[in-house]
Nucleic acid binder design. Structure first.
Lengths: 225, 225
DNA sequence: GTTATAAGTGTAAATAGAACACTAACAATA
DNA sequence: TATTGTTAGTGTTCTATTTACACTTATAAC
């Protein structure tokens, strides 16, 4: 097939999704980048993503690209913003619907993707140079994430089904980059009535074991306040 | 020009913007609809909007379409969400980047647009049937708007440069569809340090005249709290 | 001057948020 | 088995914010 196949009366931009996949590793907020195998920015780091198929919902495209390029599936995914400056891609006009996704720290095993793309985690505050306007996208995702911590139950998306209060507090502290008072944090989160003790505890070292909690409505991200 | 001019190696969706233009009229939250002159949904009501030009920023497209179809310009405009279900337009795959816009009640004179499109204001809670998924878009815009009242200075975008505290309170009450206590509202807004009295007052009927206020940073929408 | 109408004003009680330091339980090891 | 190091766990006081609540003031119309 050697001719340009898809023709329209009016010019059409290309539409892609780009995904900012966050996790918490090594006490840091990290995000996943893939190494570009083709120009432009060949060899550089970029957000995972790709072109939207004609019969494919945009969110499905984001899920598919994420799985194809990183092996990651079943994560919390939310539309972030649509980036469409005319020159953001040097090849042609490309409008990108950006999503952000969160994955619990116990599921970050990257099965190298089917097409053997190189993928790696980077600390959010030590990102390398990124292709296209991907830094802007990553920053906007971080902003949204930090804001949503306050008024939604999004923090649980970073944790396994069962977690300790210290781990939960750590999610808030890491993303907001500030220390919180332990007693006040516990009072606050327990008053929200979102989590309950499982009765189990975790022995983790040479110190007092921690109670394990779980969310009352697992999997849901809800607006609180 | 009779042949399909724009050809690509891969299929491209069409990209449009749709704009939810809100105002307050007659004590109600209203939005602007235009009557469609072409199929599909010919003769039906729809949000203003149209196709993104290849060299045009998406927000610029929203501004242009709004002005072309309604004569309205220089309004507060914010990207809302991107809608792209594969079947949302029966003609071809169309991905729409939705915006919402706010216009003060003293500027809602609709100069009938250049292309003589019929446009009209409708109360948000008495909308007619809308074309495509435009009802979903309108509802999402209303949600965002109501949420932003709480934590931003967006309410001022509905008011003229000078306004009374009762008018400002009315913005909050109308959009949130609930009554607020007058004393508490005034305490709250004045404590935010966003507005100041101009020293002028408005005589408006057979009752005590109201002080006129203005915002300290006109034109800006800021996050407060 | 009486009336109708919207503007304007304060206080007390309840709730939420911030500051702050010690005890409890365990594992390792001396 | 006593000691040490480490993280988990817990209350109270003070301050700020939010809520509930009713009367007086200034004007225009009559």
């Amino acid at each position: 097939m050697n001719t340009k196949q898809y023709c329209y009366w009016h010019p059409h931009p290309a539409v892609t999704t780009d995904i900012v996949l966050f996790t918490l590793r090594e006490e840091k907020l990290q995000l996943l980048l893939i190494r570009r195998r083709n120009p432009p920015f060949q060899g550089g780091w970029a957000l995972p993503g790709g072109f939207v198929d004609l019969d494919e919902d945009i969110a499905d495209c984001a899920k598919r690209e994420l799985e194809e390029e990183t092996g990651v599936k079943n994560v919390y995914l939310e539309q972030l913003y649509t980036f469409g400056k005319p020159q953001r891609d040097p090849r042609e006009r490309v409008i990108s619907v950006a999503y952000y996704a969160l994955i619990p720290s116990d599921r970050i095993t990257l099965k190298p993707a089917s097409d053997a793309t190189e993928a790696a985690w980077f600390a959010f505050d030590e990102l390398p140079e990124l292709a296209f306007d991907h830094r802007e996208i990553a920053e906007k995702a971080h902003e949204r994430l930090a804001a949503k911590l306050d008024y939604s139950t999004i923090a649980f998306q970073f944790l396994p089904k069962q977690f300790t209060l210290s781990e939960l507090q750590n999610v808030y502290e890491t993303i907001r980059a500030e220390a919180l008072d332990k007693r006040n944090f516990r009072k606050w989160i327990l008053a929200r009535n979102l989590i309950e003790a499982t009765g189990l505890e975790r022995r983790n070292g040479s110190h007092r074991p921690a109670q394990l909690f779980h969310t009352k409505r697992p999997g849901r991200v809800e607006i609180i306040r």
